[in-house]
């Protein structure tokens, strides 16, 4: 009887695994089939054509996403690093408890709410949608994930390594930067990469902040196109050609996420001695 239960449970687990993996593969293959034929050179280099005309690409959306993600990273990484170091090193007082709680709350806030928040405090005073507002919204989404990941990475560095640095007569800040952060750098970089992957596909916050644009944008205080928003706009449209391009953009996003995850694997690989 026991053997039967063993086999049953094992069978159920295997079945669940197959189901989950199967669905995942189905999604990926569906995207692949629909998108890959539309990803051509035009897609990467051309601007969207006027409605009704065939062809065109999403060059501006790709660039726009890239610009906002890069700016968001530049804003969120130092802030998160500083907060994480504070929490890991001095994380026992009341301020630390409150900070940690706030970070956890912020991590759970829906991204559309963050979009509305930035709309209120940045877009309205500026009287315009802008790339910088979009970048700020993305940065706010990245910070909680980054703080948690970085704090975890710093905590994993053994206390004695830090003490060894102090014992040589190194000032505290140098020990943190040159020894602790260097020890934790793989985990921190992975955290940053994963936060980037997460935020590259966020659509809702950008709707209220960066809005969208059919042209290339060279300044930061104007609306700017982004890949997820462009996908949304094209997907709900009645034009087949746009649908095709939306698939291509989806495929591109998925490939990007895959690339990031592979990079994380590479960064955290165990170098054989």
């Amino acid at each position: 009887m026991r053997k039967f239960i063993d086999k049953l449970v094992f069978g159920l687990c295997s079945l669940s695994t197959v189901l989950v993996l199967g669905i995942l593969f189905l999604i990926l293959i569906y995207i692949l089939l629909n998108g890959i034929t539309s990803v051509n050179l035009d897609f990467f280099t051309q601007l969207p054509k006027p409605v009704g005309e065939e062809g065109g690409g999403m060059a501006n959306a790709i660039l726009g996403s890239a610009i906002m993600v890069v700016i968001a990273t530049i804003i969120s990484v130092p802030v998160s690093l500083a907060a994480a170091i504070y929490l890991a090193e001095f994380g026992r007082g009341k301020i630390a408890v409150i900070t940690r709680f706030m970070v956890d709350v912020l991590a759970g806030v829906p991204s559309i709410v963050i979009g509305i928040f930035i709309y209120t405090i940045v877009v309205l005073p500026m009287q315009r949608f802008s790339a910088i507002a979009g970048a700020l919204a993305l940065a706010m989404i990245m910070v909680p994930t980054l703080v948690r990941a970085t704090e975890e990475a710093i905590r994993l560095v053994p206390q004695t390594v830090k003490e060894a640095g102090l014992a040589l007569g190194a000032p505290y800040w140098r020990v943190i930067i040159e020894i602790v952060l260097v020890s934790a750098h793989k985990a921190i970089i992975s955290g940053i990469l994963l936060a980037i992957a997460r935020v590259a596909g966020e659509t809702a916050p950008l709707l209220f902040t960066a809005l969208g644009n059919r042209f290339f944008v060279k300044v930061l205080d104007r609306p700017i196109a982004s890949l997820p928003v462009q996908i949304y706009t094209y997907a709900v449209s009645p034009y087949d050609d746009w649908h095709r391009q939306a698939w291509a953009a989806t495929f591109l996003l998925v490939m990007f996420v895959l690339l990031i995850n592979l990079s994380v694997r590479y960064v955290t690989r165990n170098k054989s001695s």
Binding site: P158, T160, E163, L166, A167, L168, V182
Partner: peptide, 14 residues
Amino acid sequence: RRRVGMVFQKSTPF
């Protein structure tokens, strides 16, 4: 701490 050095139980290479 420069004048008084310390070696720990578990080796701590940087």
